[in-house]
């Protein structure tokens, strides 16, 4: 199966959202929450986290399951895992935009340019690192210290340091964990009926 074949909806092929997409959304929320709760996330309150391995679940969610994994699950599970770390849902709602960007960006680019989610070529790796690891983390890195500052967690003087720490911590874990997950599971996922060739099915 080539990268082109992975994304191309063949003639006569019916792809529409089904119950399986609802289920994978729920299960990704479950896995993402557990991954975010495993005790190594460096949460400092109000959803600000300098190392968050669950970012990889958002990225692969968007890559494999379009809006179900990259927007719905990626936007929802941080609310639950943040709650366990002591952030109320009201505070976590502010995090939905950067989480959805993190979840959807690389999936959108891979669909648009017909790149291989199994990361077969140097181009796949390069785009994944650039978009999924760096570009998708930038909005979060700029936004996190701003949110933190709103609640007094950061000062103006610490803005740059906080943004850099966010970018390195979360961008780094997105790259490392994301590549491992895609290499390990993409070959299986692309053959399942839940895999989304388009953004919704």
């Amino acid at each position: 199966m080539t990268a082109e074949e992975i994304w191309k909806v063949r003639e006569g092929e019916i792809r529409e959202p089904g119950i399986q997409h609802l289920v994978i959304t729920a299960l990704l929320i479950g896995v993402g929450t557990v991954a975010g709760m495993t005790g190594v996330s460096a949460s400092v309150g109000f959803g600000v986290t300098f190392f968050w391995p669950a970012i990889a679940i958002q990225i692969v969610g968007g890559m494999w399951y379009g809006v179900w994994g990259g927007a719905v699950a990626a936007g929802t599970f941080p609310i639950i895992s943040n709650m366990v770390a002591g952030t109320p849902p009201v505070g976590s709602l502010l995090w939905i935009p950067p989480n959805v960007i993190q979840g959807m960006a690389v999936g959108l680019v891979f669909r648009k340019f017909r790149l291989d989610p199994r990361l077969k070529s140097a181009r796949d790796y390069l785009v994944f690192i650039l978009v999924g690891g760096i570009l998708a983390s930038i909005p979060g890195a700029l936004y996190a210290p701003w949110i933190g500052r709103m609640f007094g967690l950061f000062t103006e003087e610490s803005y740059r340091v906080a943004a850099a720490a966010w970018l390195v911590g979360n961008g780094g874990s997105a790259i490392v964990f994301g590549i491992i997950l895609l290499k390990a599971l993409s070959p299986i996922v692309v053959k399942t009926r839940t895999f989304c060739k388009t953004l919704t099915a």
Partner: peptide, 23 residues
């Protein structure tokens, strides 16, 4: 943190396997 992926991969694999059963 470095070893965490050893747990995330099987959890995600279980989620993928369960999707069909659940749906």
């Amino acid at each position: 943190a470095a070893k965490l992926i050893n747990y995330i991969v099987p959890l995600l694999a279980l989620a993928i396997r369960r999707t069909d059963e659940f749906s």
